[in-house]
C-alpha cells in the first residue's frame, strides 16, 4: 500500500459518502418533490396553466371553475400521492431494518392485502361506511395480517427467518386476495364502488378522505423518525441489539405499530400499491447508507416522488383514459427490482 493511497476517508460504496452531504441532499430531494407536485397538478383533462394553479392554491376564487378543479380534484390527488408514497416507502424501510429481510415490504408481507380485504369487507357488509372508518378498517386488516404473518413465519425450528417470513406473507397475501376477489365478483355493487381502489389508485380521492387518513400517516412518519436510531441498532440482529442493551421487544412493538399506521393508512387511502416499499429503501440505502436516521426521511421524500411520478405516468400513458397507479407501479417496479437484484448479485 502506497503512502498516498492512505487518506481514504470517503465511502465510495454509497452516493453520498460524506455525512456533510446528507442534509443538502435531503433538501434537494424536497425541492425535486415540489417540482414533481407542480408538474402533476398542472396535468389533467382541462388545460390549466401554472399561473392559474398558483392562484388556485394561494388566491382561491370560488367562482372560477378551474380553481375548483384544482382545489377539489387535483390537490387532494397529489396530496394523497405524497402521503401514500411516503407512508409505503417508510413502512418498507422500517420492515426491512427490523426483519433484516431485503424483500420485506408491506405488499410482500401481506399487510397491504390484509388492509385491502378489511376495507372491501367493510364496504360489502356495511354498504356505504363513512369515509372516516376506511382508515380504521385499514388498520384492523393490516394489524391482523401482520400478526398472522409473524406467527406463521416464526413457527417451527429456528424462529423467524427472512425466508419464512416472506413465504408466510406471500401465502397470506394470495389467500386473502382470493377472498377479496371472491367478494368483488359476487357483489356487483361493492365492485363498482371500489373497483379502481383495489388496484391501487389515486383517482377520485376526495379531500375529506385525504384529511381523515393523513393524521394517522403523519403520526406513523413522525414515530418512525423517532425510533429510526433504534432500527439501525436492531438491524445488527436481535442478539447483538440485546447485548448492546436494547429492549428489542419494545422496539419491535413500537415499530410494528408504525408499520400498521403507515401501511394501513396508505391502503385505506389509495388501495394496495405494491413495490414502493420494496424499491425505495433499496435506492435510499444506495444513496445514504444504512443509518436509519437518514434512511427514514430520504425514504419518505423519494417514496412521495416515486408515487407522484408514477401517477403522472398513469394519467398520460393512455390518455384520455388513465391507469390505476398501482398498475403503473408494477410496470415500473418489477423491471426495476429485477435490475436491482441483478446489480446486487453482481457486487
Amino acid at each position: 500500500m502506497t503512502a498516498q493511497a492512505k487518506p481514504i476517508s470517503k465511502n465510495t460504496t454509497r452516493i453520498l459518502g460524506s455525512r456533510a452531504l446528507l442534509l443538502p441532499g435531503l433538501v434537494i430531494g424536497i425541492i425535486l418533490l415540489i417540482l414533481c407536485l407542480l408538474w402533476s397538478i398542472t396535468l389533467g383533462a382541462a388545460d390549466i396553466n401554472t399561473q392559474t394553479v398558483y392562484d388556485a392554491l394561494f388566491a382561491f376564487d370560488e367562482t372560477s371553475f378551474q380553481h375548483l378543479i384544482i382545489q377539489t380534484v387535483r390537490l387532494p390527488r397529489v396530496l394523497a400521492g405524497v402521503i401514500v408514497g411516503a407512508a409505503l416507502a417508510v413502512s418498507g424501510a422500517i420492515m426491512q431494518g427490523l426483519t433484516r429481510n431485503p424483500l420485506a415490504d408491506s405488499g410482500i408481507l401481506g399487510i397491504n392485502s390484509g388492509a385491502a380485504f378489511a376495507v372491501v369487507m367493510a364496504v360489502f357488509l356495511l354498504g356505504n361506511p363513512p369515509l372516516s372508518t376506511y382508515a380504521f378498517f385499514g388498520f384492523i386488516g393490516a394489524g391482523v395480517a401482520a400478526i398472522l404473518v409473524y406467527a406463521l413465519g416464526s413457527m417451527g425450528r429456528g424462529g423467524t427467518t427472512p425466508l419464512k417470513l416472506t413465504l408466510a406473507g406471500v401465502i397470506l397475501s394470495a389467500f386473502v386476495s382470493a377472498f377479496t376477489t371472491a367478494i368483488l365478483l359476487g357483489d356487483q355493487e361493492t365492485l363498482d364502488k371500489i373497483r379502481f381502489w383495489t388496484a391501487g389508485s389515486l383517482a377520485g380521492r376526495e379531500m375529506p378522505l385525504v384529511l381523515q387518513t393523513a393524521p394517522y400517516i403523519l403520526v406513523g412518519l413522525f414515530g418512525s423518525l423517532v425510533i429510526s436510531r433504534q432500527i439501525t441498532t436492531i438491524s445488527l440482529g436481535e442478539d447483538v441489539a440485546k447485548g448492546l442493551g436494547q429492549n428489542t421487544a419494545w422496539v419491535r412493538g413500537i415499530a410494528a405499530i408504525m408499520v400498521i399506521l403507515l401501511a394501513g393508512g396508505a391502503v385505506a387511502l389509495a388501495g394496495p400499491i405494491g413495490f414502493v416499499g420494496l424499491i425505495v429503501p433499496h435506492v435510499v440505502r444506495f444513496i445514504v447508507g444504512v443509518d436509519y436516521r437518514w434512511v427514514v426521511p430520504y425514504s419518505a421524500v423519494l417514496g412521495a416522488i416515486l408515487v407522484t411520478v408514477a401517477d403522472v405516468g398513469a394519467r398520460i400513458i393512455i390518455r384520455p383514459q388513465e391507469l390505476p397507479v398501482g398498475v403503473m407501479m408494477a410496470f415500473v417496479g418489477a423491471p426495476f427490482f429485477i435490475w436491482l437484484a441483478r446489480w446486487k448479485v453482481k457486487r
Binding site: T13, R14, R100, L236, G237, R285, G289, V290
Partner: peptide
C-alpha cells in the same frame, strides 16, 4: 454475527 449490507 452478520452486519447489514453497506454498514461501514
Amino acid at each position: 454475527p452478520v452486519a447489514p449490507e453497506g454498514l461501514t
